[in-house]
Amino acid sequence: MKVGIPRALLYYYYYPFWKTFFDALSVETVVSRPTSKVIVNKGIEVSVPEICVPIKVFAGHVASIVDQVDYIFIPRMVSISKNEFFCPKFMGLPDMVKYTVPGAADKILSPKIQSDNDSISNPKYYAEVKRVLGISSWELQRALAKAEKAWQKFRQLSKDGYVLSDALKIFEGEPLKQEISKNNEDVVTIGLMGYVYDIYDEFVSMNVIEKLKESGVKIITFEMLEEKQLLKSLQFMKKQLFWTFSNKLLGAGYHFYHDPEVDGVIQVTAFGCGPDSMIGKMMELDSGAYDKPFMTVRVDEHTGESHLQTRVEAFVDMIRRKNRERGGGIQYESNLSIHGNNAGL
């Protein structure tokens, strides 16, 4: 039996769990290839125009492997935090794929995940998987225990300072490029805000991670922070957001503003994301109060890579000048926005 895993959305957060889980059950997994123009165009073709870019990309990934597998693994992600939820598009994702991607209707394997924390290893979520694969309760529990152990090890890599793309390479046994020297006094630290499927999909984000690394930047993301740090940064809000990952991003953003080691903040967001539009505006309005520059990179299916390298370099150079002339009264623009309006993907 072959189970397909689309290389999109929460693949970047939970893939080590899913891969270890199916390996433990001796089920072959087929992961779609990295996002490309062909995959994006296929997703646009089968999706409604109004849906956001990440969902279109996901649909394209499903379409690229649906004929190669017996099942497509699309968990119905409801929540991973008490009294918070995923975006409704995540909750309805199995249904959207079922009725839009040709050939997927009878191949969707969609356990319902409704947890009160990031761990998704409770056997009660996987009754459908147990039934479809014909496995025993003991086999299910054993596989989930292995998956949880692998995923916790993967998460620790993030907390040790690795971006998720590097943590995934370590999980897969791939070599990493040399890290930026910590002795370099000119290193700029950037707090990078963005959902994992926006910043770690190299095609969607125009490989912003590598561009920052090439500019000599140390990157900090929300998944590198402890949950208590994220929650502490949101204590000023009388009521937090309903969406878990949006809260994580907002908590990380204000943590970056309070952290003296963070020199500036960049938000990568997909056009049409409602929660992100509010998060971005909050961060933009408060950047001056915290005396830290903030830049938004907005992507859609027509966004091109032209000028991104120049803009990132300009943003980082501006921060370097500020750091070098700290105390010298340098004037700088604290809010910049990059909108994708170049040639299409």
Rank of each mutant, 00 (worst) to 15 (best):
S287R: 10
I51M: 07
I219R: 06
N83K: 12
L144T: 07
K281S: 14
K211T: 13
Q152M: 12
L212G: 08
G304F: 06
V312A: 02
E202P: 01
H255A: 12
L133T: 08
C87M: 04
L9Y: 00
Y332A: 12
F256R: 11
F236Y: 15
Y71N: 05
W151H: 15
T35C: 14
Y99I: 11
S32Y: 01
D160E: 15
A104D: 05
D118E: 14
D166L: 06
D70A: 01
Q235N: 14
T269Y: 05
F245Q: 10
Y332F: 15
I72H: 00
G344L: 13
L10S: 08
K159I: 12
T296P: 02
E313H: 09
D70V: 02
Y195R: 15
S47T: 05
L212M: 13
I199T: 10
W138N: 13
M278N: 10
D23P: 03
L241C: 06
E261V: 10
V208K: 04
N117V: 00
N335I: 14
P102A: 03
L109Y: 07
C52M: 09
E301Q: 15
H61T: 03
Y126L: 04
Y15S: 14
A252F: 15
I44T: 13
K42W: 00
G304E: 11
T189W: 01
E174R: 13
T244H: 06
I209R: 03
Y15D: 10
K112G: 04
V69Y: 01
S26A: 12
F58R: 00
L25R: 09
